[in-house]
Design a protein around this nucleic acid. Structure first.
Lengths: 150, 150
DNA sequence: CGCTTGCCTGGAGTGCGCTCCAACTCTCTA
DNA sequence: TAGAGAGTTGGAGCGCACTCCAGGCAAGCG
């Protein structure tokens, strides 16, 4: 825990812009450390593993999970996909493709490309509704500015 | 139902750009008609009323709901807010303010302004994650284009 | 040695936003 | 007059994404 105390606690902003807390070779993190680093709860991390959203996680001699830098990278990607609103089921599907190896590159590309389109449309949807909010806000602002001068 | 057959079935795109199916004075719609017009289910319309998300809806002599153009306008706004991801509880709060009359203009403006900020941040969040998707997609596209020439 | 802390598990519970069910009424058409 | 079709209600159920609980184990500390 002390090692991580000065590290960012939120999900990393980009896949490459947050260095790993520990260098390769010493990258063995407890579930609590990973929870703090990613902002996910330990419950959620275990749940991700149960549903197949994590590649197999190592265990130490007493059966406790030991996460690696690779796991942190994966969780950073998952966090990104989650922010875009990708359903967990789709992320599990993607994780399965990754497990199946290099032969699934095309399928992975298609999955992500389809999702990118969803995200683009969602952005457009949000932008168009902003106009409605602006319109309504203007009305209210005018209404209580005019009659009372407040 | 026949009156509505040529009307748009999706949520209206803007608060003012879809004319009412029937002119003022003849604007009495059954729940089925409203469902078709808004794209919401009759179940959902009743549920909206139950939780206080609809202003009081008129009934005919046998107790069936008769929606008006005003109700359609309200549902168009609710649909917009819903598209922005506003929680139903917040929309109910907004509906309560509307019911309380003109004295709540300021509170309504604040509610919508706060939500507008949420929407703006969400757009930014989505846009930033698009970069990650582009990055990943490029990798996959390059990977299966290079080794096989597909 | 006991206590605390952190981890383990399977399974139950939660909050949101619907979605549907059972049992009923009313109106219209054949 | 019978049946179809659309409406009514309160309340139960569902899918998603967690979130928590009970009961237990292992390590470290005074």
């Amino acid at each position: 825990m002390t090692v991580l105390e000065t590290m960012p606690t939120a999900l990393s902003l980009c896949l490459t812009d947050v260095p790993h807390p520990r260098p390769a070779g010493q990258d063995h993190y407890t579930i609590g450390e990973v929870a703090e680093h990613t902002g996910l709860s330990a419950h959620t991390l275990r749940w991700y593993e149960r549903i197949g959203l994590m590649p197999h996680v190592d265990r130490n001699h007493t059966g406790q999970r030991r996460f690696t830098n690779r796991d942190l990278d994966w969780l950073a990607l998952v966090g990104k996909l989650r922010l875009t609103g990708m359903p967990v089921a789709d992320m599990v599907r993607y994780a399965e493709l990754v497990r199946q190896g290099d032969s699934t590159y095309r399928a992975r590309e298609e999955l992500l490309t389809a999702h990118r389109e969803v995200v683009r449309q969602r952005i457009e949807e949000l932008r168009s509704t902003l106009d409605v909010l602006d319109y309504k806000i203007d009305i209210y602002a005018g209404a209580h500015a005019a009659p009372e001068g407040v």
